[in-house]
Write a protein that binds this DNA or RNA. Structure first.
Length: 216
DNA sequence: AACAGATACAACCGCCTTTGT
DNA sequence: GACAAAGGCGGTTGTATCTGT
């Protein structure tokens, strides 16, 4: 026995949503609220999977969505948050009102990745792309786009590139502070918390992004 | 005008987490 | 505590549109 599927696949529509389906979903949620996604399609008269309805509502139909181009500030905020959080799109989205995780994820993959590469930064680590071997392996397309030395691969030869010999792996360890360690002042306490918890740094409340014990 | 390749983004899939019993 | 159901998330895919030749 496995888990039951979220819907009867044989009797559900897939693919792009029609205007009629959108209208049914919107009017149903306006009257009944979001409630139970599993039972919503039937109640709303939709031949869709509950998950599909949820996604359509959250990513496209919600009235508080901003839509339109991302501003420069939003760009920079996404980059900053991604450098701290990685691919935690939902947490990043929670810091950008009117934007969805899916929207940010798509925007990242289509725009920001390229923007960082053009700045010579690795979109995964946000560190300078000094190791051309890694760069070529991870981003073959972008690496080949460099037409300035087309047909002259010797200039970028990795044979004599000593950087590959350097271990760039970084390890992170907690500072020598224990939550039970006595703190003499509130300043000491705050700086210790800053060092210990990234979520605290970002201004999240306990349980919003993490459940560590360090939040005041 | 026609075609191919690139790009953007909506939607799906599968897995993990949370919640209720 | 164990289990199932539902929700939520991130990765990936499909397809419409744009751009260059």
């Amino acid at each position: 026995m496995g888990r039951t599927p979220c819907c009867e696949k044989a009797h559900t529509n897939k693919g792009a949503w029609t205007k009629e389906e959108d209208e049914k979903l919107i009017s149903h949620i306006k009257v009944h609220g979001e409630g139970c996604w599993r039972s919503l399609p039937k109640a709303a008269g939709l031949l869709r999977c509950g998950k599909s309805c949820r996604l359509r509502w959250i990513n496209y139909l919600r009235p508080d969505l901003k839509r339109g181009n991302f501003s420069g500030e939003e760009d920079e905020l996404i980059i900053k948050l991604h450098s701290l959080l990685g691919n935690k799109w939902s947490i990043i989205a929670s810091r950008l009102p009117g934007r969805t995780d899916n929207e940010i994820k798509n925007y990242w993959n289509t725009h920001i990745k390229r923007k960082l590469l053009s700045r010579g930064l690795d979109p995964k680590t946000h560190r300078p792309l000094t190791d051309i071997t890694t760069f070529r392996a991870e981003y073959p397309k972008e690496a080949n786009d460099d037409s300035s030395d087309e047909g002259n691969s010797s200039t970028l030869s990795t044979e004599d590139d000593n950087s590959s010999l350097i271990n760039l792996e970084l390890s992170i360890s907690l500072p020598e502070i224990s939550p039970t360690m006595p703190m003499n002042s509130s300043v000491e306490k705050t700086s210790a918390l800053n060092a210990l918890c990234l979520c605290y740094n970002l201004g999240f409340q306990r349980s919003q992004a993490c459940a560590c014990q360090y939040h005041l």
